[in-house]
Design a protein around this nucleic acid. Structure first.
Lengths: 218, 218
DNA sequence: GTCTATAGTCGGATAGAC
DNA sequence: GTCTATCCGACTATAGAC
């Protein structure tokens, strides 16, 4: 009984992440999910109460995974940002590190493609799952960036301008998942590799440095 | 016979854009599409040969619409960029104008939400429709930006660094569609209004100016 | 906890009237 | 060119055996 396979419940969640992402809630069939998971169709009503319960469980799973990977970095950034003794240069470095970590997680791992696909769907047509993702993932990420970039741009933490500019910066990384097919085609790449990932991080750093340093007193 | 209703074929395409976007290809039912269009289900095999043909027709429709709105601006930018007499300052202004136009189109119109939803789906799981969208929309847009930003950053037009940094910049605008729900929640907005649209354009301009001007000789 | 069998509904496509 | 009627396969959920 070498634990080579997770239990049926966990396998169903991972299969559902893939199939819901491919076909949406309506388009995903419980047959396909159960088949992918190597489980019985009847296990879905049994464990999750039905198709909808499984969908929500997928959102929780995504939040768990991302929190596990980004959590430590975000906490460190928040602590550093909250300390009045933190210098401008330390904020710059922390922001760049956050960007690197975000790209590594988002673009550099295969699972993140599945998380992103599911999350983007929820952005266009939010359901109950969006609340889970916003409260546990998107909100906390934003909150970590705000007190770092605000002082660098000379903008108050609660100003709409700062919020918009932060989302714009986040978009610079997000695009590598959300427009992946177009980017690969333009670059004549077949996939992201570790070397290419570093090129992406470098391009993003260059843009972030430009934005941060434009806020400096001339 | 005041032309208050387009013909059934056109109505089906517009209904399909909405329903395919909501539920994906599999999840969208031809019944729902026909119902939304006020047309008969049998009209879909009749006009488009089947569900797939209708899906492809939607891609063509999106390309037509976006080309109609962005085409003139892109042509003007391309002509200006190709002229060796064009100054750096003119390139800066052209790039900012392109950004403004892109945000106005993408974020400022209701239909663009439908186009974006359909196109993002194709980015994650490309089908034949992606070729249509890439060749007619995404490719040409990129090509217009490249010869404007390249000289400003001192990067050759075919360098991978330039390509990556351009996509990163595009992401700054894209995010306002792709993370719309999260952005509205963070800003405590219920929708984008014309005033808020101008705030978005301003935030984007600030970031683009920072990126452009960081490439200037110190 | 996992299976088979089945109920009841909805799916896309077609045939053929008008 | 638009309709109704219909075929047949796929869907989710449940009941009940093991």
């Amino acid at each position: 009984m070498a634990q080579e396979k997770a239990d049926a419940k966990q396998r169903l969640i991972e299969a559902a992440l893939k199939v819901f992402g491919e076909h949406g809630f309506k388009g995903a069939s419980t047959r396909a999910i159960a088949g992918e998971a190597g489980a019985n169709i009847a296990a879905i009503p049994y464990y999750f109460g039905g198709k909808e319960g499984l969908y929500l469980a997928v959102a929780g799973h995504i939040a768990d995974q991302i929190t596990g990977r980004m959590g430590p970095g975000l906490s460190a950034a928040a602590q550093l940002a909250g300390n009045p003794a933190t210098t401008i240069e330390q904020r710059r470095q922390a922001l760049l590190a956050l960007g690197d970590g975000f790209v590594s997680m988002l673009v550099g791992t295969e699972e993140a493609a599945l998380w992103a696909r599911f999350m983007v769907r929820e952005q266009f047509d939010p359901t109950e799952a969006f609340d889970v993702l916003y409260n546990r993932v998107m909100g906390p990420s934003y909150v970590a960036i705000s007190p770092l970039l605000g002082p660098l741009l000379g903008l108050p933490a609660d100003s709409e301008e700062l919020k918009l500019r932060i989302f714009s910066v986040i978009g610079q990384a997000l695009v590598f998942r959300v427009a992946r097919a177009a980017i690969l085609r333009r670059l004549e790449w077949d996939a992201y590799t570790p070397e290419r990932l570093e090129q992406i991080r470098a391009a993003l750093r260059a843009n972030i440095i430009a934005i941060m340093d434009a806020g400096r007193p001339a």
